[in-house]
């Protein structure tokens, strides 16, 4: 097992974002210079973090990277990650887990927007809240998260699972506006409330165990069903008819905007 501890150093301009896509378990398997970007300046990783590495391994699966300190402005951590483990002890900046295809990221604080963007596989657990566009796609991208699993223990922002086409997104708290908008596959579970779920969806399944406020009028009511795992009675809808969609939306309660 190799353990990499990255402890953020005090910064003169702590609010400027740092782009650190080099922080993946695989990067520490071989000895090479790693750089990050602070605005338009390229810096050595060691200029931003105190780096300590203990242990040796041959495979990425044995690497654990721990981020400690003020990490809420560190972006793109775990981008294209294929294996191993990243533990973030506090909040994390945007685009954490972009395109990851394997391994596990655990965020003990909150995650900023685009958590698990276009993720292909692996697992992300966020113990706090997630920002907007959790498990979604990039601008203009027709496919968001394609595989893997994202679990948010708190609330998620707007557009969670936008363009979702595979994998599963689980939100234990509330989701914001338009969860599952344009989704075409995969599964979303929301245990709290949300507004305007699954607009324009064409496929996939979304369960909202709380209330969908401002329920969209273009979902066909298919009657009530009992959810297998929770035993809760949910109303099943099919749509979005406006988009010739054949997605499945199951909701605990719903209210139209009349």
């Amino acid at each position: 097992m190799m353990r990499v501890l990255l402890e953020v150093k005090p910064r003169k301009k702590p609010l400027l974002p740092i782009e650190a896509e080099c922080i993946t378990p695989a990067s520490f398997l071989e000895e090479r210079d790693l750089t990050v970007w602070k605005g338009n300046r390229e810096l050595m990783l060691s200029n931003v973090f105190n780096v300590s590495v203990t242990g040796e391994v041959d495979s990425v699966d044995g690497v654990e990277v721990v981020l400690r300190g003020e990490t809420s402005r560190i972006k793109r951590v775990g981008e294209y990650m294929e294996g191993g483990r990243i533990i973030i002890e506090d909040d994390i900046g945007m685009h954490c887990g972009n395109f990851m295809s394997g391994g596990r990221i655990e965020v003990h604080g909150n995650a900023a927007a685009w958590l698990g963007r276009e993720m292909r596989g692996g697992e992300i657990i966020c113990h706090g809240d997630a920002g907007d566009y959790c498990a979604s796609g990039y601008r203009g991208e027709k496919r968001g998260m394609r595989g893997g699993r994202v679990e948010v223990c708190g609330n998620a922002g707007d557009f969670a699972g936008e363009h979702l086409s595979g994998g599963s997104l689980i939100i234990h708290g509330d989701a914001g506006d338009f969860p599952g908008v344009e989704m075409r596959g995969g599964e979303i579970m929301i245990f709290g409330d949300c507004t305007r779920a699954c607009g324009n969806m064409t496929g996939g399944r979304c369960h909202v165990f709380g209330t969908v406020h401002e329920m969209l009028p273009t979902f066909r009511n298919m009657g009530e069903v009992v959810h297998e795992d929770t035993g809760q009675v949910l109303t099943a809808f099919r749509g979005d008819v406006a988009n010739r969609g054949k997605g499945n939306l199951f909701v605990g309660n719903y209210q139209y905007m009349e």
Partner: peptide, 19 residues
């Protein structure tokens, strides 16, 4: 958004399901 979605469905002849 809801009104635009309803209009789209109605243009396609699906107005029976609109509230």
């Amino acid at each position: 958004y809801a009104v635009l979605s309803a209009l789209r469905a109605m243009v396609r002849g699906r107005d029976e399901m609109i509230p």
